[in-house]
Design a protein around this nucleic acid. Structure first.
Lengths: 132, 132
DNA sequence: TCATTCAAAGATATCTTATGTCTATAATAT
DNA sequence: ATATTATAGACATAAGATATCTTTGAATGA
């Protein structure tokens, strides 16, 4: 079990967009080069962020991507869910009488992780960096 | 990102062994049938638990598997690590000046989950079931 | 209007991992 | 000895990750 590279690309791109102008979009070309990944592949990842409404895409000359929401709202969990999906990390499909007690524990554990990711926003990270 | 089915098999098997006799082993045949998985495949999974010292195997007639440690010591995290490995769930291999701040957040989140899995033992689960 | 510059979407390719099966081998009890 | 059982290794298949390439469509600037 591992987070996908796509999630890493998404997080780094979001951080970059966060630090950039909220008006002038950044082309996928530049974003991709920055991370050593092909533009078309990154674009495919970013399209998923567009669909969740976290970023906007602008076609045409001088187009690209920029944040769409208030900066303060962007949580790690939002970004991760957009890429990895929202399904539970552990699913027991055996037939038990009622709910699987093992699954209950796994779910609790997952919620601890998600809670931290939900409470951490891009803002927090930018703040951290400016302090360093 | 998902936990593997192998982890689910391992957890359920451990719970079964936990509830069973600490002396008389249970054959992989029975354990496999219980979960609708082939004996050789389950055996491959259980061998990893043997290598970490959590369970013992007994060859030959009336052989099988049984717990090897004190029941109170068995944590979810031990079992999961034995199957999934202990590597971090998120690894940023980009070149940043110092540590990647995104990775730092992800690591914290993972530790929240691991903390819960480390503090939850098979004992806790058995207790829960007897109460229900 | 027209050419250029972009993102979006679809088809396809490759590699890795998950999820097994099958067979041969070693250990053990009767 | 023989039947039973775990172990190990080779092998097979399917799914997911990680892309690339090409076409399409939208927006802009001239």
């Amino acid at each position: 079990m591992k987070f996908t590279k796509a999630t890493n690309y998404a997080l780094h791109t979001m951080l970059k967009l966060f630090e950039a102008s909220p008006v002038k979009p950044i082309g996928v070309q530049e974003l991709a080069e920055m991370q050593g990944v092909s533009p078309t592949y990154l674009s495919k990842i970013l399209t998923r962020l567009v669909k969740t409404g976290m970023i906007e895409s602008v076609s045409g000359v001088n187009g690209g991507y920029r944040l769409s929401r208030k900066k303060e709202d962007m949580t790690f969990l939002d970004i991760i869910h957009a890429i990895e999906g929202t399904a539970s990390l552990f699913e027991c499909d055996f037939f038990h009488g009622d709910e699987c007690s093992i699954q209950a524990v796994m779910k609790e554990a997952e919620e601890k992780m998600e809670s931290h990711l939900k409470n951490t926003k891009l803002t927090d990270l930018a703040l951290k960096q400016s302090q360093a």
